[in-house]
Design a protein around this nucleic acid. Structure first.
Lengths: 161, 161
DNA sequence: CTACTTGCAAAACTTTTGCGGCAGT
DNA sequence: ACTGCCGCAAAAGTTTTGCAAGTAG
């Protein structure tokens, strides 16, 4: 039922479907960006998206990439992130709420979900008189020396910068 | 024994003391920036710091403000923050680890500390095979309608954008 | 056909930097 | 004195935008 995440070799990409649902004109450029995004498991910045897109079809400009990610963000399809480094990075919005752990030595970004954390931050906000609308949690850590190897820490989506 | 936070009308500001301890040359410009920072309970961006500084003595340029906050960050006296909006904002580094709750309606930033959160994120990082070096946690929320008024939620330092 | 999109290049913004002169220690 | 700092203005880096031409619906 669920597309197995990588089953979009040539059909309509998941992001393209979302664009259509939201009534966006699907131009070649947007379709290309949608595909690149759907196939990206990491958090590329605009420059990187542009590089990946151009590699497939160079009839696209970086201005269009900027315009498109901004549009997709407004439509709730993408989320803008900032892991430091001056450039905005993008993340698909509907993959469920997750957090990020950044390896300070390698820059690798590991996604994780944690219900305890979900609950706690909601409680904290409530205690301050607020209802939580959103949150941004980034942990910066260093690999513990004697840990065998993280690879895929726990079946959670993993990812490299 | 602790300076009552606002007792720096004309003595040496807390930040200036830290600069001297770290062996920085105390020029008029740095002293001015140090004072403005010590008296700021909020998280100003560079433009705002520059405005506040110029108001007292216009023999300072914005380039110096940029250079100084960068220096103070390197010396561990300030911490650079990013609450979105494209500009870096600064926070005194030694006020203890705290987190931020941003009111999405007003932009107001509320600081809070929470030991449960400290512990939980450290545990999560450990579970992923990392030791926590740092973290960035920002909650975005909306005032609960029937709450009387937050003013100062809990004796924690409060602040407005 | 009409309204929205694109590419290009220029502009806008924030932040950094080279350099000659000035100032703290 | 010596070293580092400042102001100015130019540069750098990222993101936005005006405009004329092109295209999806």
């Amino acid at each position: 039922m669920h597309t197995p995440a990588t089953a979009e070799h040539e059909g309509i990409s998941r992001i393209e479907r979302l664009c259509i649902e939201r009534g966006l004109k699907m131009t070649g450029q947007r379709r290309l960006i949608a595909r690149v995004l759907s196939e990206s498991a990491d958090h590329p910045d605009v420059e990187e998206l542009y590089r990946r897109a151009v590699a497939r079809d160079d009839r696209i400009s970086i201005a269009t990439v900027y315009r498109t990610v901004r549009l997709l963000e407004e439509k709730g399809i993408l989320e803008r992130r900032d892991f430091g480094g001056g450039r905005a990075r993008y993340d698909q919005a509907d993959r469920g709420h997750h957090y990020h752990l950044i390896d300070v030595d390698t820059g690798r970004v590991i996604e994780f979900a944690d219900p305890r954390l979900d609950t706690l931050v909601r409680e904290i906000a409530a205690g301050l008189g607020f209802t939580l609308e959103d949150n941004r949690i980034e942990l910066f850590g260093r690999r513990v020396a004697d840990t065998p190897d993280p690879a895929v820490p726990r079946g959670k989506p993993r990812d490299a910068e």
